[in-house]
Write a protein that binds this DNA or RNA. Sequence first.
DNA 1: CAAGATTGAGTAGTCAATCTTC
DNA 2: GAAGATTGACTACTCAATCTTG
Lengths: 162, 162
Amino acid sequence: VGTPPWLDEEEARAWRSFITAQGRLRGRLARQLLSDSGLSEADYEVLVHLSEAPEGALRAFELGRRSAWEKSRLSHHLTRMARRGLVERQPCPTDSRGAFVVLTALGRSAIEQAAPRHVEHVREDFVTAFSRSGLEDLRRLCDRLLAHLDALEQEEGCDGNS
Amino acid sequence: VGTPPWLDEEEARAWRSFITAQGRLRGRLARQLLSDSGLSEADYEVLVHLSEAPEGALRAFELGRRSAWEKSRLSHHLTRMARRGLVERQPCPTDSRGAFVVLTALGRSAIEQAAPRHVEHVREDFVTAFSRSGLEDLRRLCDRLLAHLDALEQEEGCDGNS
DNA sequence: CAAGATTGAGTAGTCAATCTTC
DNA sequence: GAAGATTGACTACTCAATCTTG
Protein backbone atom coordinates (compact mmCIF):
# COMPACT_ATOMS: atom_id res chain seq x y z
CA VAL A 1 0.00 0.00 0.00
CA GLY A 2 1.22 3.54 -0.54
CA THR A 3 0.43 6.30 1.86
CA PRO A 4 -3.27 7.19 1.92
CA PRO A 5 -4.20 9.72 -0.76
CA TRP A 6 -5.86 12.54 1.17
CA LEU A 7 -5.47 14.10 4.56
CA ASP A 8 -8.01 13.01 7.13
CA GLU A 9 -10.14 15.49 9.02
CA GLU A 10 -7.72 16.09 11.88
CA GLU A 11 -4.69 16.36 9.61
CA ALA A 12 -6.40 18.84 7.36
CA ARG A 13 -7.57 20.98 10.27
CA ALA A 14 -4.11 21.04 11.81
CA TRP A 15 -2.61 22.05 8.50
CA ARG A 16 -5.16 24.78 7.84
CA SER A 17 -4.93 26.18 11.35
CA PHE A 18 -1.16 26.26 11.28
CA ILE A 19 -1.03 28.06 7.94
CA THR A 20 -3.77 30.58 8.57
CA ALA A 21 -2.69 31.42 12.12
CA GLN A 22 0.78 32.22 10.92
CA GLY A 23 -0.45 34.23 7.98
CA ARG A 24 -2.75 36.35 10.08
CA LEU A 25 -0.12 36.92 12.76
CA ARG A 26 2.63 37.91 10.36
CA GLY A 27 0.39 40.21 8.39
CA ARG A 28 -0.77 41.97 11.51
CA LEU A 29 2.72 42.39 12.92
CA ALA A 30 4.06 43.58 9.59
CA ARG A 31 1.38 46.25 9.34
CA GLN A 32 1.98 47.39 12.91
CA LEU A 33 5.73 47.55 12.38
CA LEU A 34 5.37 49.49 9.17
CA SER A 35 2.95 52.04 10.54
CA ASP A 36 4.87 52.48 13.83
CA SER A 37 8.35 52.69 12.39
CA GLY A 38 8.26 52.79 8.61
CA LEU A 39 10.19 49.52 8.51
CA SER A 40 9.24 46.33 6.68
CA GLU A 41 9.81 42.89 8.19
CA ALA A 42 12.79 42.57 5.89
CA ASP A 43 14.26 45.90 6.98
CA TYR A 44 13.78 44.92 10.60
CA GLU A 45 15.52 41.61 10.19
CA VAL A 46 18.57 43.14 8.53
CA LEU A 47 18.80 45.87 11.16
CA VAL A 48 18.50 43.41 14.04
CA HIS A 49 21.32 41.24 12.75
CA LEU A 50 23.56 44.24 12.15
CA SER A 51 22.80 45.83 15.49
CA GLU A 52 23.73 42.61 17.27
CA ALA A 53 27.08 42.41 15.48
CA PRO A 54 30.21 44.09 16.84
CA GLU A 55 30.65 47.54 15.23
CA GLY A 56 27.25 47.07 13.57
CA ALA A 57 29.02 45.45 10.64
CA LEU A 58 28.70 42.05 8.98
CA ARG A 59 29.94 40.46 5.80
CA ALA A 60 27.11 40.27 3.28
CA PHE A 61 27.24 36.48 3.08
CA GLU A 62 27.05 36.29 6.89
CA LEU A 63 23.91 38.40 6.81
CA GLY A 64 22.54 36.16 4.09
CA ARG A 65 23.24 33.07 6.14
CA ARG A 66 21.61 34.45 9.27
CA SER A 67 18.48 35.55 7.52
CA ALA A 68 18.40 32.56 5.15
CA TRP A 69 17.71 34.76 2.14
CA GLU A 70 18.72 34.34 -1.47
CA LYS A 71 21.83 36.34 -2.13
CA SER A 72 20.18 38.34 -4.87
CA ARG A 73 17.30 39.24 -2.59
CA LEU A 74 19.79 40.42 -0.02
CA SER A 75 21.71 42.45 -2.55
CA HIS A 76 18.60 44.15 -3.91
CA HIS A 77 17.34 44.84 -0.42
CA LEU A 78 20.64 46.32 0.72
CA THR A 79 20.62 48.60 -2.30
CA ARG A 80 17.20 49.90 -1.28
CA MET A 81 18.20 50.27 2.38
CA ALA A 82 21.39 52.07 1.41
CA ARG A 83 19.38 54.48 -0.71
CA ARG A 84 17.32 55.26 2.40
CA GLY A 85 20.48 55.79 4.44
CA LEU A 86 19.93 52.86 6.83
CA VAL A 87 23.07 50.92 5.91
CA GLU A 88 26.30 51.43 3.99
CA ARG A 89 28.42 49.06 1.95
CA GLN A 90 32.18 48.95 2.53
CA PRO A 91 34.86 46.90 0.85
CA CYS A 92 36.41 44.07 2.86
CA PRO A 93 40.15 44.59 3.47
CA THR A 94 41.09 40.90 3.75
CA ASP A 95 39.02 39.55 0.84
CA SER A 96 38.57 41.89 -2.09
CA ARG A 97 35.60 39.92 -3.40
CA GLY A 98 33.70 40.57 -0.21
CA ALA A 99 31.56 43.43 1.03
CA PHE A 100 30.86 44.63 4.52
CA VAL A 101 27.44 45.92 5.37
CA VAL A 102 27.52 48.57 8.08
CA LEU A 103 24.78 50.13 10.14
CA THR A 104 24.65 53.91 9.80
CA ALA A 105 23.73 56.22 12.67
CA LEU A 106 20.29 56.56 11.11
CA GLY A 107 19.96 52.79 10.86
CA ARG A 108 20.93 52.31 14.48
CA SER A 109 18.48 54.87 15.67
CA ALA A 110 15.77 53.34 13.50
CA ILE A 111 16.16 49.90 15.03
CA GLU A 112 16.46 51.29 18.54
CA GLN A 113 13.21 53.17 18.10
CA ALA A 114 11.42 50.29 16.46
CA ALA A 115 12.43 47.35 18.61
CA PRO A 116 10.58 48.08 21.87
CA ARG A 117 7.27 48.72 20.15
CA HIS A 118 7.68 45.71 17.93
CA VAL A 119 8.44 43.47 20.89
CA GLU A 120 5.36 44.82 22.62
CA HIS A 121 3.27 43.87 19.62
CA VAL A 122 4.77 40.39 19.52
CA ARG A 123 3.87 40.00 23.15
CA GLU A 124 0.37 41.30 22.71
CA ASP A 125 -0.44 39.49 19.47
CA PHE A 126 1.38 36.22 20.09
CA VAL A 127 2.76 35.55 23.57
CA THR A 128 -0.30 36.52 25.55
CA ALA A 129 -2.44 34.13 23.52
CA PHE A 130 -0.83 31.25 25.45
CA SER A 131 -0.19 30.00 28.93
CA ARG A 132 3.42 29.38 29.81
CA SER A 133 3.06 25.68 29.23
CA GLY A 134 1.17 26.30 26.00
CA LEU A 135 4.07 28.39 24.81
CA GLU A 136 6.47 25.60 25.66
CA ASP A 137 4.33 23.04 23.87
CA LEU A 138 4.18 25.23 20.80
CA ARG A 139 7.93 25.70 20.79
CA ARG A 140 8.52 21.97 21.11
CA LEU A 141 6.17 21.23 18.25
CA CYS A 142 7.78 23.83 16.00
CA ASP A 143 11.23 22.57 16.87
CA ARG A 144 10.09 19.11 15.98
CA LEU A 145 8.92 20.36 12.60
CA LEU A 146 12.22 22.16 12.05
CA ALA A 147 14.14 18.99 12.83
CA HIS A 148 11.92 17.09 10.41
CA LEU A 149 12.64 19.62 7.66
CA ASP A 150 16.36 19.47 8.41
CA ALA A 151 16.22 15.71 8.01
CA LEU A 152 14.38 15.93 4.71
CA GLU A 153 16.83 18.44 3.31
CA GLN A 154 19.68 16.35 4.59
CA GLU A 155 18.46 13.34 2.59
CA GLU A 156 18.06 15.39 -0.55
CA GLY A 157 21.57 16.73 -0.24
CA CYS A 158 23.01 13.24 -0.89
CA ASP A 159 20.50 12.18 -3.50
CA GLY A 160 21.79 11.58 -7.00
CA ASN A 161 25.42 12.31 -6.17
CA SER A 162 28.14 9.74 -6.60
CA VAL B 1 4.08 48.55 36.33
CA GLY B 2 3.60 48.11 32.61
CA THR B 3 4.26 44.86 30.87
CA PRO B 4 7.91 43.81 31.01
CA PRO B 5 9.97 45.33 28.18
CA TRP B 6 11.57 42.29 26.52
CA LEU B 7 10.62 38.72 25.87
CA ASP B 8 12.14 36.21 28.23
CA GLU B 9 14.14 33.25 27.00
CA GLU B 10 11.22 30.87 26.58
CA GLU B 11 8.98 33.46 24.92
CA ALA B 12 11.67 34.44 22.45
CA ARG B 13 12.42 30.83 21.58
CA ALA B 14 8.76 30.03 21.02
CA TRP B 15 8.39 33.07 18.81
CA ARG B 16 11.50 32.33 16.74
CA SER B 17 10.64 28.65 16.33
CA PHE B 18 7.11 29.41 15.26
CA ILE B 19 8.19 31.95 12.66
CA THR B 20 11.10 30.03 11.21
CA ALA B 21 9.33 26.68 11.09
CA GLN B 22 6.49 28.18 9.14
CA GLY B 23 8.79 30.04 6.81
CA ARG B 24 10.83 26.96 6.00
CA LEU B 25 7.76 24.80 5.50
CA ARG B 26 5.96 27.23 3.23
CA GLY B 27 9.03 27.91 1.16
CA ARG B 28 9.64 24.22 0.67
CA LEU B 29 6.05 23.43 -0.26
CA ALA B 30 5.88 26.40 -2.61
CA ARG B 31 8.99 25.27 -4.46
CA GLN B 32 7.71 21.70 -4.71
CA LEU B 33 4.32 22.85 -5.97
CA LEU B 34 5.86 25.15 -8.54
CA SER B 35 8.28 22.60 -9.91
CA ASP B 36 5.69 19.77 -9.92
CA SER B 37 2.82 21.71 -11.41
CA GLY B 38 3.91 25.16 -12.49
CA LEU B 39 1.48 26.68 -9.99
CA SER B 40 2.26 29.20 -7.27
CA GLU B 41 0.68 29.02 -3.82
CA ALA B 42 -1.61 31.82 -4.91
CA ASP B 43 -2.66 30.01 -8.10
CA TYR B 44 -3.33 26.89 -6.08
CA GLU B 45 -5.50 28.66 -3.57
CA VAL B 46 -7.66 30.28 -6.23
CA LEU B 47 -8.05 27.02 -8.12
CA VAL B 48 -8.99 25.09 -4.98
CA HIS B 49 -11.74 27.53 -4.05
CA LEU B 50 -13.13 27.54 -7.57
CA SER B 51 -12.99 23.77 -7.95
CA GLU B 52 -14.95 23.36 -4.71
CA ALA B 53 -17.68 25.72 -5.89
CA PRO B 54 -20.68 24.54 -7.91
CA GLU B 55 -20.02 24.98 -11.66
CA GLY B 56 -16.46 26.03 -10.78
CA ALA B 57 -17.66 29.61 -10.51
CA LEU B 58 -17.58 32.20 -7.74
CA ARG B 59 -18.20 35.89 -7.45
CA ALA B 60 -14.91 37.74 -7.21
CA PHE B 61 -15.70 39.17 -3.79
CA GLU B 62 -16.56 35.66 -2.52
CA LEU B 63 -13.18 34.47 -3.69
CA GLY B 64 -11.57 37.43 -1.98
CA ARG B 65 -13.37 36.68 1.26
CA ARG B 66 -12.39 33.02 1.24
CA SER B 67 -8.75 33.67 0.56
CA ALA B 68 -8.62 36.82 2.71
CA TRP B 69 -6.75 38.77 0.04
CA GLU B 70 -6.85 42.44 -0.80
CA LYS B 71 -9.22 42.98 -3.65
CA SER B 72 -6.56 44.57 -5.82
CA ARG B 73 -4.28 41.62 -5.27
CA LEU B 74 -7.07 39.33 -6.33
CA SER B 75 -7.86 41.37 -9.40
CA HIS B 76 -4.24 41.49 -10.54
CA HIS B 77 -3.83 37.80 -9.91
CA LEU B 78 -6.97 36.90 -11.82
CA THR B 79 -5.73 38.95 -14.75
CA ARG B 80 -2.52 36.94 -14.82
CA MET B 81 -4.35 33.63 -14.42
CA ALA B 82 -6.79 34.56 -17.17
CA ARG B 83 -3.87 35.36 -19.46
CA ARG B 84 -2.59 31.84 -18.81
CA GLY B 85 -6.01 30.39 -19.56
CA LEU B 86 -6.67 29.00 -16.07
CA VAL B 87 -9.77 31.08 -15.33
CA GLU B 88 -12.22 33.32 -17.14
CA ARG B 89 -14.15 36.38 -16.07
CA GLN B 90 -17.85 36.60 -16.78
CA PRO B 91 -20.35 39.36 -16.04
CA CYS B 92 -22.87 38.70 -13.27
CA PRO B 93 -26.47 38.71 -14.55
CA THR B 94 -28.13 39.82 -11.31
CA ASP B 95 -25.67 42.55 -10.31
CA SER B 96 -24.03 44.41 -13.14
CA ARG B 97 -21.23 45.66 -10.92
CA GLY B 98 -20.17 42.14 -10.17
CA ALA B 99 -17.93 39.66 -11.91
CA PHE B 100 -17.95 35.91 -11.90
CA VAL B 101 -14.70 34.03 -11.98
CA VAL B 102 -14.99 30.68 -13.72
CA LEU B 103 -12.64 27.73 -13.89
CA THR B 104 -11.71 26.81 -17.47
CA ALA B 105 -11.16 23.23 -18.59
CA LEU B 106 -7.43 23.91 -18.44
CA GLY B 107 -7.77 25.30 -14.93
CA ARG B 108 -9.72 22.29 -13.77
CA SER B 109 -7.23 19.88 -15.18
CA ALA B 110 -4.38 21.88 -13.63
CA ILE B 111 -5.81 21.63 -10.13
CA GLU B 112 -6.74 17.98 -10.56
CA GLN B 113 -3.20 17.18 -11.59
CA ALA B 114 -1.61 19.29 -8.90
CA ALA B 115 -3.68 18.43 -5.84
CA PRO B 116 -2.64 14.83 -5.17
CA ARG B 117 1.06 15.56 -5.38
CA HIS B 118 0.69 18.67 -3.28
CA VAL B 119 -1.22 16.80 -0.61
CA GLU B 120 1.49 14.16 -0.59
CA HIS B 121 4.08 16.85 0.02
CA VAL B 122 2.03 18.35 2.83
CA ARG B 123 1.85 14.93 4.39
CA GLU B 124 5.53 14.26 3.99
CA ASP B 125 6.80 17.69 5.00
CA PHE B 126 4.31 18.52 7.74
CA VAL B 127 1.96 15.77 8.92
CA THR B 128 4.55 13.03 9.35
CA ALA B 129 6.63 15.28 11.58
CA PHE B 130 4.07 14.72 14.35
CA SER B 131 2.31 12.03 16.29
CA ARG B 132 -1.46 12.08 16.15
CA SER B 133 -1.66 13.74 19.55
CA GLY B 134 1.09 16.17 18.59
CA LEU B 135 -0.95 17.16 15.58
CA GLU B 136 -3.99 17.73 17.78
CA ASP B 137 -1.97 19.81 20.21
CA LEU B 138 -0.62 21.92 17.41
CA ARG B 139 -4.07 22.48 16.00
CA ARG B 140 -5.43 23.49 19.38
CA LEU B 141 -2.60 25.95 19.92
CA CYS B 142 -3.04 27.50 16.49
CA ASP B 143 -6.78 27.76 16.98
CA ARG B 144 -6.13 29.49 20.26
CA LEU B 145 -3.91 31.98 18.48
CA LEU B 146 -6.55 32.54 15.82
CA ALA B 147 -9.17 33.20 18.46
CA HIS B 148 -6.80 35.63 20.15
CA LEU B 149 -6.28 37.50 16.88
CA ASP B 150 -10.02 37.57 16.25
CA ALA B 151 -10.53 39.12 19.67
CA LEU B 152 -7.87 41.76 19.06
CA GLU B 153 -9.34 42.71 15.72
CA GLN B 154 -12.78 42.74 17.25
CA GLU B 155 -11.67 45.32 19.84
CA GLU B 156 -10.10 47.51 17.20
CA GLY B 157 -13.27 47.48 15.16
CA CYS B 158 -15.08 49.48 17.87
CA ASP B 159 -12.22 51.73 18.84
CA GLY B 160 -12.60 55.41 18.15
CA ASN B 161 -16.01 55.21 16.50
CA SER B 162 -19.24 57.14 17.19
C1' DC C 1 -22.30 57.72 -0.98
C1' DA C 2 -21.49 52.08 -0.27
C1' DA C 3 -20.16 48.11 -2.68
C1' DG C 4 -17.92 45.56 -6.37
C1' DA C 5 -14.27 45.67 -9.09
C1' DT C 6 -10.19 47.43 -11.99
C1' DT C 7 -5.96 50.16 -12.93
C1' DG C 8 -1.33 52.33 -12.36
C1' DA C 9 2.65 53.41 -9.86
C1' DG C 10 5.86 51.96 -6.77
C1' DT C 11 8.16 48.44 -4.03
C1' DA C 12 9.71 43.46 -3.39
C1' DG C 13 11.41 38.82 -4.56
C1' DT C 14 13.11 35.16 -7.97
C1' DC C 15 15.78 33.31 -11.48
C1' DA C 16 19.51 33.27 -14.59
C1' DA C 17 23.48 35.59 -16.19
C1' DT C 18 27.52 38.08 -15.04
C1' DC C 19 31.77 39.87 -12.94
C1' DT C 20 35.71 39.58 -9.95
C1' DT C 21 38.77 37.44 -6.92
C1' DC C 22 40.38 33.30 -4.49
C1' DG D 1 36.51 26.46 -11.31
C1' DA D 2 34.06 27.95 -7.12
C1' DA D 3 32.95 31.68 -3.69
C1' DG D 4 31.25 36.37 -2.92
C1' DA D 5 28.50 39.56 -4.74
C1' DT D 6 25.79 42.43 -8.23
C1' DT D 7 22.55 43.23 -12.09
C1' DG D 8 18.49 42.89 -15.25
C1' DA D 9 14.27 41.08 -16.53
C1' DC D 10 10.20 39.31 -14.94
C1' DT D 11 6.57 38.31 -11.77
C1' DA D 12 4.02 39.55 -7.56
C1' DC D 13 1.90 42.54 -3.80
C1' DT D 14 0.33 47.18 -1.80
C1' DC D 15 -1.64 51.50 -1.79
C1' DA D 16 -4.32 55.11 -3.57
C1' DA D 17 -7.14 56.57 -7.24
C1' DT D 18 -10.77 55.48 -10.31
C1' DC D 19 -14.97 53.78 -12.50
C1' DT D 20 -19.58 51.96 -12.42
C1' DT D 21 -23.78 50.40 -10.50
C1' DG D 22 -26.93 49.85 -6.30
